[in-house]
Amino acid sequence: MHELSIAMSIVEMAQAEALQRGVQIRAVHVKLGALSGVVKQALLSSYEMACDDTLLRGSRLVIEDVPVVIFCPKCKVPRPLSSVQLFCCGECGTPTSEIVQGRELEVVALETQ
């Protein structure tokens, strides 16, 4: 359970931006990859806790789930992965470990007013 420390980092980052820009933040938008190692529900509940006693108090965390995309070495194109239990091309079945997308853990935008 490392979601609380992740949530605290997010709040810290957003707070620094808020101070720097002199704005109030209503929501923080993050991208969360299926292979980020972070559990969405745990992050959401940790966020509320992490916001306490900060400028972010009362703000929302908006999470965009990022599915895994692999690169098929045979088809030579990126393909969505249908299951993280089976890393292979959904079209031709070629196994691959080349991950194009899905490890994201990023703050992408701040909703201000």
């Binding site: 992740i6 980092s9 980052m13 993050v30 853990l105 990023e106 703050v107 909703e111 201000t112 007013q113």
Partner: peptide, 18 residues
């Protein structure tokens, strides 16, 4: 009336420090 919310792009890796 509250002002319209505005979306500011930031793009920051949360684990950047690590």
């Amino acid at each position: 009336m509250s002002p319209e919310p505005r979306l500011v792009e930031v793009r920051k890796n949360v684990l950047k420090q690590n």
